[in-house]
C-alpha cells in the first residue's frame, strides 16, 4: 500500500545521493576555509529526510536542526541559493545572515534550522497549531536528534501536541551520539520512541532503511493529515563523522566508527535497486555525474555571488 513506484524510487535515490554528495562537497570546501564558522554534516543519515519529506507538499511545514542540510534539501530547497547561504553570500536564502545553522525558506515550508538543541520543537508545534487553527490541512514535520529528547521543550511540546491532537510528526534521528557523548550516558532507556507512551501518542522504532522509514512516515503523515494527532518516530541512524566538520571523534572507538560506516543506507538501497532492476549500473553512474554537475554549478554560483554589503548590517531588524 505504501510501496513507492519505480519513478518514486529513482527520485528518492537521486535525493539521497544529492544529500551525500552535497555534504562531501561541503566538507571539502569547508576544510579549505571557503566557508567560515561551523558545519554539521548528516552523512550516514540520508534516508530519514528523504523518506519523510517524500510525503510532504511544499505548503507543509518542517523544522530542522544544526545538522539540517539533508532536511532542507529533501524538503525542496534550491541548491544554488542554499549553497550561497552556506558561503555567507547575499544571494543566499537569508542574505548570508544564517549560514548553515539557521537556514530557512518559507516558500518550501522550512521554518528554519536551529542552533539551539530542542529549540525547533516548540516552533514546529506552533506551526502545527497554526495550521490546525486555520484548518488548512497542512502537516508539520519536526526533526531532531536523540540528544534533544532530553530537553524540556521536547516533553512540553509532545504533551501539548497530544492534548490538542496537532497535525505533526516528530522525527527523532537517533544516531547514538549527543555531540560527544553516547546515548547510554544520558538516557536510561534504549528506545526514544518509548517516550511517546507518556504522551499517549504512537511511537515507533524504525531501522535506517529508506523503504521502512518511507512506510512508517507515510502512516504518521496520513494520521496527522486526517486530524488524528501526532506521532513520534525514532530512526536508528548512524553518524559517520564528528559532531561538526573537523571533530576528530577521539571519544569514539575506531571499530565503532567503522561499524557505523558499514551501515550505509545509500549503498543498501542501491543494491536493492540493482537487484530488482529498477536501475542499472550505467544509470547509477549517470545519476552520480548529473548530481556532481549540479553541485559544481551551485558551488560556482555561491563563489560568484557577492558578500552582503556592510551597509546592510542594520537592515530590517524591525518590520
Amino acid at each position: 500500500m505504501r510501496k513507492p513506484g519505480k519513478k518514486k524510487l529513482i527520485q528518492i535515490y537521486k535525493k539521497m545521493v544529492t544529500i551525500r554528495k552535497v555534504e562531501e562537497k561541503l566538507m571539502e570546501v569547508f576544510s579549505t576555509g571557503e566557508i567560515p564558522g561551523f558545519i554539521h554534516v548528516c552523512i550516514g543519515q540520508e534516508a530519514t529526510p528523504v523518506a519523510v519529506c517524500s510525503w510532504l507538499k511544499d505548503s507543509d511545514y518542517m523544522s530542522t536542526t544544526h545538522r539540517g542540510h539533508g532536511h532542507a534539501l529533501a524538503k525542496g530547497i534550491d541548491l544554488n541559493l542554499f549553497m550561497a547561504e552556506l558561503f555567507g553570500k547575499s544571494a543566499g536564502y537569508c542574505r548570508g545572515r544564517s549560514g548553515s545553522m539557521h537556514i530557512a525558506d518559507p516558500k518550501t515550508g522550512i521554518l528554519g534550522a536551529n542552533g539551539i538543541v530542542g529549540g525547533g520543537i516548540p516552533i514546529a508545534t506552533g506551526a502545527a497549531f497554526a495550521s490546525q487553527y486555520k484548518k488548512s490541512g497542512q502537516v508539520t514535520v519536526c526533526f531532531f536528534g536523540e540528544g534533544a529528547t532530553n530537553e524540556g521543550t521536547f516533553h512540553e511540546s509532545l504533551n501539548i501536541a497530544s492534548i490538542r491532537k496537532l497535525p505533526i510528526v516528530y522525527v527523532c534521528e537517533n544516531n547514538g551520539w549527543a555531540e560527544f557523548t553516547p546515548q547510554k550516558t544520558h538516557m536510561p532507556i534504549k528506545k526514544v520512541a518509548d517516550r511517546a507512551r507518556a504522551y499517549d501518542m504512537p511511537g515507533a522504532v524504525v531501522p535506517n532503511d529508506i523503504l521502512k522509514i518511507y512506510e512508517k512516515a507515510g502512516e504518521a503523515v496520513e494520521r496527522a493529515r486526517k486530524g488524528q494527532g501526532p506521532t513520534l518516530l525514532e530512526i536508528k541512524s548512524t553518524r559517520w563523522h564528528g559532531h561538526f566538520v573537523g571533530d576528530a571523534q577521539k571519544y569514539r572507538l575506531e571499530k565503532e566508527v567503522a561499524a557505523a560506516k558499514k551501515k550505509d543506507c545509500i549503498a543498501d538501497f542501491e543494491k536493492k535497486l540493482l537487484k530488482d532492476k529498477t536501475l542499472r549500473k550505467a544509470e547509477i553512474k549517470k545519476i552520480a555525474d548529473m548530481v556532481n554537475q549540479r553541485i559544481e554549478g551551485a558551488v560556482d554560483f555561491a563563489r560568484k555571488s557577492p558578500l552582503p554589503d556592510q551597509s546592510e548590517l542594520m537592515d530590517d531588524l524591525y518590520v
Binding site: S63, P122, A124, T125, G126, F129, A130, Y133, T153, I160
Partner: peptide, 28 residues
C-alpha cells in the same frame, strides 16, 4: 478553546510555540 489556548505549565514550549504560530500567520 481554539482561540483561548489554555496551556499546561510549560513556559518554554508556549513561547516557542507562539514563535512558530506567528511565523505561520497567526498573531499570538
Amino acid at each position: 478553546p481554539e482561540r483561548i489556548f489554555d496551556t499546561p505549565i510549560s513556559e518554554a514550549a508556549i513561547t516557542g510555540l507562539a514563535a512558530g504560530a506567528a511565523a505561520c500567520g497567526l498573531r499570538p
